[in-house]
């Protein structure tokens, strides 16, 4: 199972990469493997203001729809249109081309409570 070291992971299986004030979010390799066959992704509107813990996106497999939660509060500044055209990117490249959305945040402190790679690895094993 691929768990990149530089990312933070939520118990609900989102990963976050902080670059300055912008948090990029996707779902983990473990999550995509559990879902299998991602067939639809619903992304938030750019400009939406969200709070940490809000459900902001939906990833759907053949069988189920799963909410994706914002790891930090802030404004949605970018979404990955490519996964709307080709949802299987979430399966094939969950940390790269399969990212979901970016939040510009003034308070990255909720990330401190998330798992690092080692702890997340232990959490899912």
């Amino acid at each position: 199972m691929n768990i990149p070291d530089q990312l933070k992971y939520a118990e609900s299986h989102e990963w976050t990469e902080l670059d300055g004030e912008v948090a990029k979010v996707g779902i983990s390799d473990h999550a995509q493997a559990e879902l299998t066959d991602v067939v639809y992704v619903e992304l938030p509107e750019i400009g939406n203001v969200v709070e940490a813990g809000d459900p902001v996106a939906v990833v759907e497999s053949v069988k189920a729809a799963s909410d994706i939660f914002a790891p930090v509060g802030g404004e949605i500044v970018e979404v990955n249109d490519a996964v709307q055209d080709d949802p299987s990117l979430v399966n094939t490249d969950p940390y790269g081309a399969g990212w979901l959305f970016k939040i510009k945040t003034e308070d990255a402190s909720p990330l401190e409570a998330l798992f690092d790679a080692d702890a997340y690895g232990a959490h899912i094993s």
Binding site: H13, A31, L35, P55, K63, A64, A65, S66, D67, I68
Partner: peptide
């Protein structure tokens, strides 16, 4: 994603 455990998400029950 919803809940902590993926293996509990939406499987079976609703579709059944």
């Amino acid at each position: 994603m919803t809940g902590g455990k993926i293996d509990k998400i939406g499987w079976g029950v609703e579709s059944a």
